[in-house]
């Protein structure tokens, strides 16, 4: 079963168009949505949750059409962390816990207070006095404390220090050990996505350029560094991106189309995205 199924999803704003997005998130896996600022990542997430109206297309979340009346009940099973959308600023984590207890039927007080403790969040400090990292941690604690089956996270790791980022990525990884649990994570920190994602979807200028298994992507592509003369021997269709300098050429190529006589280097997700 797919946790999320998006078909031909389109949305137009003045000066921006998200067009024909087709995406599937298989249950039990983590899908990373990557793209530059303004590429359409947040809009896609909002469309998945039916928080903005679409122009066309369909979205199913946990098997339910998100325009149907049953979708509100499905939201009980979805934990969401949004970039720059927070709880009212005078609320303390303790207040937030009480509000959420009356929001989610499956709210788990013990789990929530464990997360507050783990993230070292003061229970009685007002939200407005939190750093960005602390705000994100509180949002993640809330998203994890109502026993969700799906996590939707918009830039959830940005603004966090590397140690806590790693800890949070581990939490997401543990979460998907249950094969009914899935995560959709948008980020521009490509190294974070490379660390935990099973699938990578790349959105650029409102269009989905690819949605592939991460391992397959890393296996298919390679980096070559060579002289201009050697580079010209590589078939043009195998070259996905290149940087030419006076010392030679550095290019991202399809491994299968390149002769074994050329030495190739392992590529990273960042190389592929930047190319």
């Amino acid at each position: 079963m797919n946790a999320i199924e998006i078909k031909n999803l389109s949305k137009t704003y003045p000066g921006f168009e998200l067009r024909d997005i087709n995406l599937e998130l298989p249950a039990g896996s983590i899908l990373g949505l990557v793209g530059e600022n303004g590429a359409g990542k947040s809009t896609t997430l909002k469309l998945i949750m039916n928080a903005v109206s679409r122009d066309s297309g369909s979205v199913k979340v946990l098997g339910v059409d998100n325009l149907s009346n049953e979708f509100n009940a499905v939201k009980e099973d979805i934990g969401v962390v949004l970039d720059e959308a927070y709880f009212p600023e005078v609320l303390t984590p303790k207040n937030v816990g009480k509000v959420m207890k009356n929001t989610y039927r499956n709210w788990d007080d013990v789990c929530y207070s464990n997360f507050l403790h783990r993230f070292r969040l003061p229970e009685t400090k007002a939200f407005k006095d939190f750093s960005r990292g602390m705000k994100m941690k509180l949002a993640i604690a809330v998203a994890m404390s109502h026993r969700p089956k799906l996590l939707i996270l918009d830039e959830a790791t940005s603004g966090l220090d590397p140690i806590i980022r790693d800890e949070i990525l581990d939490i997401f990884n543990d979460f998907t050990r249950d094969e009914t649990h899935s995560v959709l994570l948008s980020s521009h920190i490509v190294s974070d996505l490379e660390k935990i994602c099973d699938y990578i979807a790349f959105i650029h200028n409102g269009r989905l350029l690819f949605c592939e298994e991460k391992d397959k992507l890393l296996e298919e592509y390679a980096i070559v560094k060579m002289s201009k003369a050697d580079f010209e021997k590589i078939p043009e269709e195998a070259v996905k991106g290149k940087k030419i300098s006076k010392y030679g050429v550095e290019a991202l190529v399809l491994k299968s189309a390149v002769s074994h006589t050329f030495s190739t280097e392992f590529t990273t997700l960042e190389d592929i995205i930047l190319s």
């Binding site: 928080a51 939201k75 927070y86 009212p88 600023e89």
Partner: peptide, 18 residues
């Protein structure tokens, strides 16, 4: 007005409120 200031409305749309 306080909801707007904290962008609570965007977050509320993600939660199971009708």
């Amino acid at each position: 007005a306080y909801d707007e200031r904290s962008k609570w409305n965007s977050l509320a749309l993600m939660m199971p409120y009708s």
